[in-house]
Amino acid sequence: MAKITFIQHNGAEQTCDGSPGMSVMETAIKNMVPGIDADCGGACACATCHVYVEPEWVDKAGPRNPMEEDMLDFAFDVQDSSRLSCQIKVTDALDGLRVRVPAKQF
């Protein structure tokens, strides 16, 4: 189990248990975290599971893959810490991961 904290635009925090192997997006959906729409269901085809990884976790979460980089063109306000949460696999090393949810997926 890895604890993953989702921080809403208004500062509200929700910490969920992520199972290794699942994606951060799936963890959010399973726990009904608001603001993670995941329209395409995790196919890396829509950019509606966009999150900002908190600075201290950026390295551990790893770099974006090329498909994800392309898809982020469809997101709004892309920052250096932007990731698609369907492309971050939960691992024990990510226990404590903190990600911010944008004000709006679009």
Binding site: D39, T48, D73, F74
Partner: peptide
């Protein structure tokens, strides 16, 4: 002209 793909 913003082209950000399609949504349903």
């Amino acid at each position: 002209l913003p082209f950000f793909g399609l949504t349903m």
